[in-house]
């Protein structure tokens, strides 16, 4: 039971991170109906920026404290936002109205490019970063098996919950959110009603990239190591989470992320750790076969 609880806590943390990345996929899919394959790379760039900023701060003699953690986060978000904006502007916007597979191929190219660009610029080695949020506490202990919770895990989960609340408010209560939902339903109509569609789409990319950046920071803190190919697998998993929760639905992405994180943690704990990615992809295939709309998604109506 204690073992299960421990795995659940780890799974929840992982799931929260997947959820944050998945939101980026789901929002972009909702608004322009494309899979932003390069989204995982934005997350990876977020992790790299964390390493860079922490090292720069460290070289200035500032050592990780709570203020630094927050400062790095606030620095990374706008930078990944700019990356997200640029990717959309350079690789996707010119392709609107091109044939169906064009944006996806462009996205794959972008993903390969960014991965190798970062490898070229920052090197192929693992980048270590110091532990910034040390310690934790023991939740319960029985039969000599302590269930431990790291402070960082609490930070990640609390932050994710706060971001979810913020994002929901943003989508349902603000002018931008209304524009975004309008574009999602009918882009042409939204345009006719005076909504700047291009700006709304760009803002969606920036928002998604910002969330991916936050996830990148958290992963860098959580695992203390960063590599240029991290984005590929994380992106794929987050996409799975988005599909699981129902692509196009923001709460669905979060739910899918949490579920996927839990499933992965439990699979590694009780079956085999080697096949945990296998399990994740099997879930993707199974969901797509039996319930392509996911848990919270709407059925997609194909129109001529």
């Amino acid at each position: 039971m204690e073992y299960f609880l421990q795995q659940a806590i780890n799974g929840l943390t992982l799931g929260a991170i997947y959820g944050l990345i998945a939101i980026g996929y789901t929002m972009v899919y909702g608004i322009i109906g494309m899979i932003n394959f390069a989204h995982g790379e934005v997350f990876m760039i977020g992790s790299f920026l964390t390493v860079i900023f922490i090292t720069v701060l460290g070289s200035l003699g500032i050592h990780p404290t709570f203020t630094i953690i927050a400062l790095v986060l606030l620095l990374v978000i706008p930078f990944t936002g700019v990356w997200g904006w640029s990717i959309e502007r350079a690789a996707y916007r010119p392709l609107r109205g091109s044939f169906r597979l064009a944006p996806l191929i462009s996205a794959i190219g972008m993903s390969i490019f960014l991965q190798n660009l970062v490898q070229f610029l920052q090197g192929a080695r693992n980048k270590p970063i110091p532990v910034v949020v040390p310690g934790g506490f023991t939740l319960v202990e029985s039969d000599g098996f302590p269930v431990q919770v790291r402070w960082l895990q609490i930070v990640i989960v609390v932050m994710t919950v706060a971001l979810m609340i913020g994002l929901t408010t943003l989508i349902h209560r603000t002018r931008f959110g209304r524009a975004q939902r309008a574009c999602e339903q009918d882009m042409k109509m939204a345009m006719l009603l005076g909504i700047d569609v291009n700006r709304t789409i760009s803002a969606t990319f920036v928002l998604g990239a910002g969330l991916a950046g936050i996830a990148g920071v958290m992963v860098a803190y959580y695992y203390n190591v960063v590599n240029f190919y991290d984005g590929f697998l994380a992106g794929l998993k987050a996409f799975t989470a988005a599909v699981l929760g129902g692509i196009g639905s923001v709460p669905g992405a979060m739910l899918g992320g949490l579920l996927l994180g839990l499933i992965e943690a439990m699979w590694s704990a009780y079956f085999s750790i080697e096949y945990k990615d296998f399990a994740a992809f099997s879930i993707l295939v199974l969901v797509l076969i039996f319930r392509p709309t996911g848990i919270l998604g709407r059925p997609e109506i194909e129109k001529v």
Partner: peptide, 28 residues
């Protein structure tokens, strides 16, 4: 057989997942 009923972009990701699954199988 199971995935071809899906839309193009889903298909792409599932095939990607399938490729990775085969590789994981080969490694393990």
């Amino acid at each position: 057989f199971p995935v071809l009923r899906l839309r193009g972009d889903y298909l792409a990701i599932v095939t990607l997942g399938f490729g990775e699954m085969i590789r994981i199988l080969l490694i393990n």
